[in-house]
Design a protein around this nucleic acid. Structure first.
Lengths: 247, 247
DNA sequence: ATGATTCTTTGACCTTAATCAAGGAATTTT
DNA sequence: AAAATTCCTTGATTAAGGTCAAAGAATCAT
């Protein structure tokens, strides 16, 4: 199995604009006339701007809306009762947050902006009403949820079976792939999250994250300048992530 | 956060019958007249019986249907390209399998019967058509998918943050809770899966699973006779799972 | 039933990553 | 700009769980 994008998209360039982002796919599924499109614009109630560090929603908050990221970068995390925190994902432009809240009408994780951000607020009642009217939208919503399930299973595989170097390699490859799909470099990226947050996501301690970065750097696979990463040898990263592939 | 049921249900007794299982919730959401109910019966195309070891669907199979378990017990698992396998879940009566297939029209995991079983096959096209007609069904489908996402995040927390004893305690508590919700004992259970499969789910090796069972047994917390487990001290298990709670 | 196979347990030892500790770099606040 | 804070790195040590090995128990097939 491949370590999929969070959005499942192949790494072609997709421009982030209202008419051309994952949100737009949600608002305006393909194959609609412009009258239909106008109605679909109603899914989005309003936008919200957040500063770095702002919390979009918290575990326990009542659930009303899904959120589509227009700009910025988020983390979502859950915590055990004794306070251990697990980052469950990092989300970027075009991705949808809040699906966890549907089952119980309360959010089940925290969503925090890791840089200044803007989200489109989509009241879930609207989404359901319009989904009944537009099969394409309905199916799109189902795909978004299924995609999240598939992604989560990939993370389980990572956490349950892989060693530290494999986890970090998978993480970097996944991030750069998603960024590339949004028009950014294939080889350079700026990490919006701390080493601690990476560690939390990957099930390793901050020291291990740091050491693994240093190891990759010593081996000439990446160039690390704080949160600026340049991938020097993508093949080597893939090799680490997928040790069996012997070519 | 609590380690939820796969089905999110509180551990009250629910009888497994067509008119009273998770599937029935899917076919017949509350608040419908009997004419509506008849139409909703159409979601289920047909049933399928499986023997222990039979594969319901495989990674790569084209996706057509969701499956509701009537009787029996399943595992779902993904594998990395180099063959490492991760069990992503164990499913029992009333639970839904196949949601992973929606996003790509192909299944993304294997579903294997761990004991003789029967499933109701629900062609997903039917589900979508009827969902547009019945808001209660629509919302129910959304809840099922959201529940799976929340469950997966709980597993991530387990795999990313917990130690072997905590993982096994959480696993046993979760299993017995779900069984109890189906009318079985609160303290006795028969494991339908091997030690290896438990280990795969919990991110530990078979020897560690075995040793941890032995440890719990020596400590008088459980009684282990092969796959027959009797929980002697639920509180102790909860304490292990949730070390802070000093109520 | 009997032999074969698979599953499970236990022991000895080893590896990986966690922990503890300290110092340095970067960022934020005053 | 200086001080304070946070973040990151590196080293030394330890602990948890993995690996290897072997034997016993249970299940399956002939």
């Amino acid at each position: 199995m491949t370590y999929l994008n969070a959005d499942g998209m192949k790494p072609e360039t997709i421009k982030i604009a209202c008419s051309n982002c994952n949100l737009s796919e949600l608002c305006m599924p393909v194959g609609l006339n412009s009258d239909d499109m106008k109605k679909l614009d109603e899914v989005v109630a309003v936008r919200r701007k957040l500063k770095r560090g702002d919390v979009l929603f918290r575990n326990g908050d009542s659930f009303n809306s899904l959120y589509a990221i227009r700009t910025g970068f988020f983390k979502t995390c859950v915590a055990s009762e004794d306070g251990r925190e697990q980052v469950t994902g990092f989300q970027m432009a075009g991705e949808i947050m809040g699906l966890d809240g549907i089952v119980s009408n309360h959010h089940n994780c925290n969503a925090v902006a890791l840089e200044d951000a803007e989200v489109c607020i989509m009241p879930f009642d609207n989404v359901e009403v319009l989904s009944r009217e537009f099969p394409a939208l309905q199916h799109h919503v189902h795909k978004i949820m299924s995609r999240e399930i598939v992604r989560d299973h990939g993370v389980m595989l990572l956490l349950g079976n892989m060693r530290a170097e494999e986890r970090l390699a998978a993480f970097l490859l996944n991030l750069v792939q998603r960024l590339h799909a949004r028009g950014f470099s294939q080889s350079e990226l700026i990490l919006r999250m701390s080493r601690e947050e990476i560690g939390s996501y990957l099930g390793m301690k901050i020291e291990t994250v740091s050491r693994t970065f240093s190891k990759f750097s010593e081996d000439g696979i990446i160039d690390v300048k704080q949160r600026n990463i340049r991938i020097l040898n993508t093949e080597a990263l893939k090799q680490i992530y997928n040790p069996q592939s012997c070519h």
